[in-house]
């Protein structure tokens, strides 16, 4: 695997690894790792570093909905223009162009069911090129970005095994 990809894999799993730790773990020197990471950030390959949070265990418990949006692509712009108009709203956490029965999959997070419904009916549905929307609320999260929500912490192996 290339240097860049090795570093990216490690950071995707644990963004808190230091440059020195990355260097040791990949067998590269720290200067190379620092330069590579800086370049990856500059090139927008690394878009940010964030924590994976289970909000259900907090006093904030936002509502998440998947919204299937059917749209008419625009001349010269394809789907990109309408997608941008939608994903620029801060409530939109993810936005994907899809194959199949609808065009855009929009993942919206807001404080309440009502707020999401309102956002869809006031901001998305009225857009000229939007033909229809269908909103699905998430009831329970089991796994997200490769992380399971019900992980057991701690080591239940025996104390010493030779």
């Amino acid at each position: 695997m290339e240097t860049r990809e090795k570093i990216l894999q490690l950071l995707e799993e644990n963004a808190r690894l230091s440059i020195d730790e990355l260097a040791v773990m990949t067998g590269l020197d720290a200067g190379t790792v620092a330069r590579t990471v800086a370049q990856l950030e500059a090139d927008n390959v690394i878009l940010g570093y964030s924590a994976a949070v289970n909000w259900e265990k907090t006093s904030l418990d936002p509502v998440t909905a998947l919204i299937e949006v059917r749209v008419t692509p625009q001349r010269d712009q394809g789907f990109d223009h309408i997608a941008r108009r939608i994903y620029r709203f801060p409530q939109v956490k993810s936005c994907y162009l899809m194959s199949g029965g609808f065009d855009l999959m929009v993942i919206v997070e807001d404080t309440s069911l009502k707020a999401v419904a309102q956002f869809v009916s006031e901001k998305i549905a009225p857009l000229d090129s939007v033909l229809s929307t269908q909103t699905h609320f998430i009831l329970k999260k089991y796994k997200m970005n490769g992380l399971e929500f019900d992980v057991r912490n701690g080591d239940d192996r025996e104390a010493v095994v030779l």
Binding site: G154, D155, R157, E158, A159, V160, V161, L162
Partner: peptide, 20 residues
């Protein structure tokens, strides 16, 4: 071994010959 077993749960164990 006995000491380590007694302290199981309160210690970081790097003593185990099996995959985590």
């Amino acid at each position: 071994f006995d000491m380590a077993s007694e302290m199981k749960g309160q210690v970081i164990s790097l003593s185990i010959g099996e995959p985590d």
